[in-house]
Design a protein around this nucleic acid. Structure first.
Length: 196
DNA sequence: ACGCGCGTTCTAA
DNA sequence: TTAGAACGCGCGT
């Protein structure tokens, strides 16, 4: 699915993973020169109606461009996520690094603090969990809530595994913090379950 | 249940 | 642009 956002040449792609009951919506750039997809943002949606409403609200317009390489990369990405959601222990960050997909994290996390948080997050492997406190210890900071805020502003959930961060006392903690708290937390639980 | 701490974002000059 | 207030996926008590 190819849309454009305003005059900016950003595209979107969405699909429903086979083994999940939510939709994955992705903003991305495709570079014709480098033949690579850069992931900009991953958003979860409850259903397709919500996506269509979102598309209307954000004034995204359908584009007629169609590039086979781009399509292939996106299909591979979809297949990877399907494999992940089916319960295979996959380190999405490492796998994506082997594909023609870029994350451009330098542009997404600009402050020293958020860079440290992300670096620490990427060390947490599928099946493992950490805590906001532990991350703080690792980056030498006691700004636990601020660490949560970095996770909240994480544009690439799943890949940067904020869902593996729990509260120190074992409670699940929040996830994404955008729309529906219960629904979002359920996704966090679901992700932890399939990784176990 | 409350106060606190702290990076980031919002708001009002 | 700049200070300061408000905000949060938390922690300790």
């Amino acid at each position: 699915m190819y849309f454009l956002r305003g005059s900016i040449n950003i595209s979107i792609f969405y699909f429903k993973p086979l083994k999940a009951d939510f939709y994955i919506f992705i903003y991305y750039f495709y570079s014709n020169e480098r033949k690579k997809v850069t992931l900009e943002e991953i958003i979860f949606f409850k259903d397709e109606i919500d996506i269509l409403n979102y598309i209307r609200r954000e004034s995204l317009v359908i584009s007629d461009k169609e590039n086979l390489i781009e399509k292939k990369i996106l299909k591979d990405f979809e297949a990877l996520l399907n494999q992940y959601f089916s319960g295979d222990k996959i380190n999405l960050y490492e796998m994506i690094n082997k594909m023609d997909i870029e994350l451009n994290l330098e542009n997404k996390f600009k402050t020293e603090f958020s860079k440290n948080v992300v670096e620490s997050l990427l060390k947490v492997k599928p099946g493992d969990t950490t805590t906001y406190y532990q991350i703080g210890a690792e980056i030498n900071s006691r700004a636990f809530r601020a660490i949560g805020n970095v996770c909240k502003s994480n544009p690439l959930p799943l890949i940067i595994p904020c869902h593996r961060v729990l509260r120190k006392n074992g409670e699940i903690g929040g996830f994404m913090g955008k729309t529906d708290k219960v629904w979002e937390t359920d996704i966090k639980k679901f992700l932890l379950k399939i990784e176990k």
